[in-house]
Design a protein around this nucleic acid. Sequence first.
RNA 1: GGGCCGGUAGCUCAAUGGUUAGAGCUGCGGACUCAUAAUCCGUAGGUUGCAGGUUCAAAUCCUGCCCGGCCUACCA
Length: 587
Amino acid sequence: MTRYLVTSALPYANGPIHFGHVAGAYLPADVYVRYLRMAKGPENVLYVCGTDEHGVAITLKAEQEGLDYRSYVDRWHKDIKGLFDRFGISFDMFSGTARCKHHVDASQKFFLALHEHGFLQERTEEQWFSEATSRFLPDRYLEGTCPNCDFNKARGDECPQCGTWVDAKELKNPVSLIDGSNPVLKPTTHWYLDLPKLKEQGLGAWYDGEDAAHPIKGWKPNVDGYVQAMFKDLHERPITRDLPWGVPLPEGIEGGEGKVLYVWFDAPIGYLSATMEWAEAQGEPEAWKSWWQGEDTRLVHFIGKDNIAFHVVVFPSMLLGQKDAWEGKAMVLPWAVPANEFYNLQGRKFSTSNGWYLDNDHFFANFDADAARFHVLMSAPETADSEFSWQEFQVTNNALLADKIGNLASRVLKFAGKRYEGHTPEVDAAVVDDLRHHDSLQEADRQFEAVGTHLEAQEFRKSCHALVAGSAALNQFFDAMEPWKLAKSDDETERARCAATIERCIAYLELLSRRLSPYCPGAAGRLRSMLGACADLADGSQWGLGAVSHVPAGLALDEAGVLFAKIDDDTIAAECERLEQQAAAQA
RNA sequence: GGGCCGGUAGCUCAAUGGUUAGAGCUGCGGACUCAUAAUCCGUAGGUUGCAGGUUCAAAUCCUGCCCGGCCUACCA
């Protein structure tokens, strides 16, 4: 059986995350995972993630705030997890690279295996060193005079005046932006990952799909364009740093004392160490192997476009370079990397510091997480940047969720409540059989099946459209049958058609509740409880096939409630106003 | 500067080189009354960013330009 190991990019524990992050790497993954659990069985799906808690940016911010590194990342870990909980992101394990007890060992083992297999190069170069703080300075935290145009506020990596790329060592009169001191050049040794060699030894074949073990489907255009360009000019890449915070180099590496693994190196290993943590929590510490070394595993990385190089080139290289170091078995390579673009907010980038963001506490206190999930997914940046707008959110919520889907449940169940005293009607099987061929029901069948095929292909926007189209087809069916007229007829055959119509609608509402489940788990659950005893006609945790073929008579239905509440114009106007004020306050 | 992605109806998006470029939402008109003033039907809406080229045929392929975005290896 094919198994799916799904990851979402590790959020950096250095600040709040927002809807933009959720739209790109988390919500699509969560909907995909919820679908897979239903369609393939929960035992064949594992969804892991965690915060990325190392790196120079964290050390600097923590020091600025006077916090030790541990407390600092703990705070953001908690904050970030809080937003995921509100969105209902259903990780099997959400850990963190500085809190997972397997992480240091796993990362060091990765390094050692690459070292032993000849995929690392050692180089000694001069770097700016601050004697005041006894630390090497990243280029970005240096300022000085540009060697090209003499502009005196050039950064260590780039000159904002002439735009040229500055080699930090050539920067004149450098000053540390951290403490204002004048650094000196000092030699330091670092290890480089030999990407060109790894590309020759299998990465290239894997990427091109020549490796039969990984029959990956085509890469997305944004991924392929980026990686092809990268392959044309592939270089060795440093994977160590001089920092006081991170995974120390393994013992026994000469010259490695006091150095740590580069955060980009240890971060993706977080997917593996989180899996180990999950396995241990299950009481089967070895269970991670069946995921990371199983021939049937499909490893799927959901990321934003800023992460493409690391997930399609660097991390696969690291996995490939392990060879048989892990008890003689190779690691799986990614099967798919759905990289999304960026999600903006009403024409501008999300920015907490500029006040251009959605306040998470406020949002979830006033709006339904299910509606947010559906809208954000439906407008997710799959092929190009996209955005959240309050007006569009209102349209999705009102016109699609409340009117098309919620009202469908309402009209059917209330009709049954009145005409059949809250129970499923008795039907003539022949009349029901006749209705099965109705154009609208066949259209509903097609659309509800398409929901699954689109999800399987990671086409989330299309899957949302199919779900709405399926519901629209059911509304058409209801309208075409006109049960409100049939029910009042003196003709017995007309009343039989009415009963059969309601029977079919109830069967399809049960199907709808399962199709809706990955997107809107809360509303799907409410719909199932409204269906009362009819919810028992199919296992709600199963994607299953289509609508149940026969709804027995006399099953009790529950009270028909409101699945999705509408959002009025004033509320939307108030939210837009709130956003503008937030931005103005920060200006 | 270099690389890459995108530009299609008022809005959000579709369209293996192949009929007359399609949906949804909004707008307008109508039907209906079971339902959350919902639903259903009809209709309007286009120089596919611009200019060339290839082809029997171009939104699609090629060249140049314009606009937006991302990356550019020490921002994770």
